[in-house]
Amino acid sequence: MATTEPQVLATDVAATAVAAPAANALISVRALDAFFGATRAVRDVNLDFLEGQVTAIIGPSGCGKSTLLRCLNRMHETVTTARVEGEVRLDGKDIYERSVNPIEVRRRIGMVFQRPTPFPTMSVRDNVTAGFRAAGRAAPSRAEQHAIAEWALHRAALWAEVKDRLNDSAMALSGGQQQRLCIARALATKPRVLLLDEPTASLDPLSTQKIEELVYELRGDVTVVIVTHNMQQAARVSDRTAFMLLGDLVEVAPTSRMFTSPSDERTEAYITGRFG
């Protein structure tokens, strides 16, 4: 089936910069450039992230994949001297429009980082509800907080392990548990998109497996974008894969086809391990 599909989306889109987004695209990126000072870390990227699907971004380190990810929820601009040009449309609405508040964007697009980042001064429960509590105008009741914590911890497949330790410091959890806690924290605000920036880079194989299973579970409900330098991981968890090199988006395709018959020779060189 894959072979009969029309030529890869990304290359088509790159040719005509104003291409209409795919029908089921939740986020569509158009002509996106990201800078650190004068250095252009991401060049002219056009890419659609389809609703309910898991998209993996792969590429050698320094290729701009994390930077691209951080442009999707306006985290890139929190670094001094960082700058973005182009469009990122969430549900058709450009999140870089002047009137848009980045805080609102980030509440709808959750993010989890390379290293677990639980807030050290908060309990497990308070960590999970942190974003939730910050979003509301009125403080949610204890019962509400508990309910949302339980829901999010269930979703992050952590409930069974921490249900008796909700009042303990989050720092007492293991690294893998902390990372799933961070996923639960991101899910608690019920975001439509979840960005994962190499979420297993600092974890042991067992914890990695749990996170991968979790990502697999989340598809359908949440649109997931995962940056990884681990091609096997991309192959295991994603529906579509995008390959970046030196700031350019080289190719994007359904994962199964990407790893069997890539259309660009640079992609082929990368996935067959010739560089990176």
Partner: peptide, 9 residues
């Protein structure tokens, strides 16, 4: 589109 209300100071 109304679901994605991103404004606010």
């Amino acid at each position: 589109m109304a679901s994605t209300q991103l404004h606010g100071a």
